[in-house]
């Protein structure tokens, strides 16, 4: 059952063009595979590095209700990381390999997490703006051409909307609270607004991977398109919060039916990406430390499994491997 390379490639192109999903064992161009692994890994890394700025406030959350919400949210991020690593592993790249690359600085994560969470309001601002931007980016990925990635994204997007809403609610409470709380909320929005806009990536004419990714339907909309959509969504939400967005050039453009907004400091973006953000070093070293300090635990469990592999309680899908609630 030999198929020629050209026929395979044609079949792949037809499937993608017809909006069919590509599944793990299907033939795919090497560049498509590499592009997917890169994107899924970066996405997974972002989830687990993204735990840090928020976990920073779990021990200081100002009410028990907020403490529970925040813990559940950070837990979700670990979960999302797991869904995504799991999707990446369908292409034959192990999680360990990906983590090694992250720890060695050879794979990236979203630059936004290189900014610090300085006050409690930052947790709310992350929920509203950072998760909001992430959702804008991610909803189209639920229709991504690669099946496992699309399925992981469906699950993630469902859970993310909780994240965004709790962030918004938390900021609202601050904005409508005492003057000090209001000021805290405004300060957080001032600091997170521009980095959130950068989350959509460089402008379309400078985006290295965009064009091919659009053809492959790994990506459905351009960076600038999504950024514009996000700005238009946020403006009325900010008004309802009673907070301002820190951009004097932000105004409605009747003709375009969209908001105009000020120039993004792409120099800052590139610098943070290069490693010169306020927290790059801290984020990676915490990650690396957790991994290294966990090594003896992982080894212990592996050793135990090897010793006891013979004495499990028998096979059968309805016995050993099943738990019923």
């Amino acid at each position: 059952m030999e198929t020629t390379a050209a026929a395979r490639e044609a079949a792949f192109d037809t499937a993608v063009a017809a909006d069919e999903r590509i599944e793990p064992r299907d033939w795919m161009p090497e560049a498509y595979r590499a592009s997917l692994v890169r994107q899924m890994a970066q996405h997974a890394h972002s989830e687990i590095i993204g735990m840090q700025p928020e976990a920073n406030w779990i021990t200081r959350a100002p009410s028990l209700r907020r403490k529970a919400i925040l813990m559940a949210k950070v837990q979700d991020e670990a979960g999302h990381g797991l869904y995504l690593y799991s999707a990446a592993e369908t292409l034959g790249t192990s999680r360990d390999e990906l983590l090694d690359k992250l720890h060695a600085g050879r794979q990236k994560y979203s630059s936004i997490f290189n900014y610090p969470t300085l006050t409690w309001a930052d947790v709310g601002a992350i929920g509203w703006l950072v998760d909001g931007a992430a959702i804008t980016n991610q909803v189209p990925l639920c229709r991504c051409s690669y099946g496992p990635y699309a399925r992981a994204m469906v699950r993630i997007c469902k859970e993310e909307s909780f994240h965004q809403r709790q962030g918004y609610e938390s900021l609202l409470a601050l904005s409508q609270g005492t003057p000090a709380q209001h000021e805290m909320a405004q300060d957080a929005v001032n600091r997170w607004w521009w980095p959130s806009l950068m989350m959509f990536g460089p402008p379309d004419d400078e985006s290295a991977h965009s064009a091919q990714s659009m053809i492959w339907k790994i990506k459905r909309h351009s960076n600038d398109e999504l950024r514009q959509r996000f700005v238009d969504i946020c403006v009325p939400q900010a008004e309802a919060l009673g907070l301002t967005l820190p951009d004097p050039d932000l105004k409605w453009n009747e003709e375009r039916g969209q908001h105009d907004f000020g120039a993004i400091d792409w120099n800052e973006f590139r610098e943070v990406l290069k490693g010169n953000g306020p927290c790059n070093e801290a984020r990676i070293s915490q990650r690396r430390r957790a991994h290294e300090e966990g090594a003896w635990v992982r080894e212990a469990a592996t050793a135990y499994a090897a010793k006891h592999s013979g004495d499990d309680s028998g096979g059968g899908s309805d016995a050993a491997g099943e738990v019923t609630a």
Partner: peptide
């Protein structure tokens, strides 16, 4: 247990400890 968030020996364990904490 909440102090473990982001520090667990494996990601699966991060999720497990958070469940208990919650």
């Amino acid at each position: 247990l909440g102090e473990w968030a982001g520090h667990a020996p494996e990601l699966e364990e991060d999720v497990a400890l958070a469940n208990i904490a919650l």
